[in-house]
Structures are given as structure tokens and as C-alpha cells.
Nucleic acid binder design. Structure first.
Length: 129
DNA sequence: ATGCTGACGTCGC
DNA sequence: CGCGACGCCAGCA
């Protein structure tokens, strides 16, 4: 995806392509957007996708975050859950997963894969920025 | 090349 | 309401 103008991205500085679009690869954009999530707050895959300009790309956001663990600077991928505030995959019915632990370390509570008070902790880059 | 999968979300029926 | 189809596209078989 390429933003038409630099200010459209609201992200950090990017170089320009020959045609004037902003050079960016989706994965990097996801990482940058995720780093904007405040400590102690959470957002959704789809919210990041919308922020990046493609509401339908939520699935790719998950794909990108899946590969974000060895990235520097660090990406707080644990602050991204699905639209309903649930932790992904086989984590259901387990309280002792790395992701749940990371969230609880930041003061949030996770019960059976569900972020407690998700609606209050939810942080939407579209409205909060 | 082709088809399937996946940290998802929306839309239509 | 619930449920399925579809969009997105990199990676893998």
C-alpha cells in the first residue's frame, strides 16, 4: 500500500517513490502504528488496518504482528487483540500465556482470553490521534 | 503455476 | 439476531 501524500499516513518519515507516492511496506506500517498504542491500552487489528488506510486488511495486520517479535525497536504486539477484546487462537481458557502476562504486567486483566473492561481500555488510532 | 492458510472484520442473506 | 462468503496478500506445499 502506498499513501498518496505523506500527511495521509500520519506516521513517521518515509521516503518517496518516483511517482510521488510514499514508499512503505505494510509490515513496517503496522509496526509503527502498533508502537503508538499507549501503555495500558489495547486496540484491534481492524482499527490498525483502518488507520493504515485499508479497512479490509485486518487479516494482514495479524499476519504482520505475528512476525513482530524479533523486531527492533520493540513492537507491543500484545496490545493488539481482536475487535471483541479477545486474545487470538489457542489461548482460550488459559490464563498463563505470554500475551496475557504481558497485558497484566501493564495493569490489565485477562480472563479466559478476554481483556476485562475492553471497551474502556480500547484505544482507536483514528479517533485518539 | 495454483490453491490453501492465517493474531481479522465486514457485509449480505 | 446467526451464519457464511469474501477481501487482503505473503508464505508455503
Amino acid at each position: 500500500m502506498a499513501f498518496r501524500r505523506e500527511e495521509d499516513s500520519l506516521l513517521t518519515i518515509k521516503s518517496l517513490n518516483m511517482d510521488g507516492t510514499v514508499k512503505s511496506d505494510f509490515k513496517t506500517d503496522v509496526f509503527e502504528a502498533t508502537r503508538l498504542i499507549p501503555l495500558g491500552r489495547v486496540t484491534a487489528y481492524g482499527s490498525i488496518a483502518r488507520y493504515l488506510g485499508d479497512v479490509r486488511a485486518s487479516r494482514r495486520v495479524g499476519w504482520a504482528l505475528n512476525k513482530s517479535f524479533n523486531v527492533d525497536p520493540k513492537v507491543p504486539a500484545h496490545r493488539v487483540v481482536n475487535r471483541l477484546g479477545m486474545l487470538p487462537g489457542a489461548l482460550h481458557f488459559s490464563m498463563d500465556t505470554p500475551m496475557a502476562n504481558a497485558l497484566e504486567k501493564e495493569g490489565m486483566q485477562v480472563i479466559d482470553g478476554q481483556v476485562v473492561d475492553f471497551d474502556k481500555l480500547f484505544w482507536d488510532p483514528m479517533t485518539e490521534l
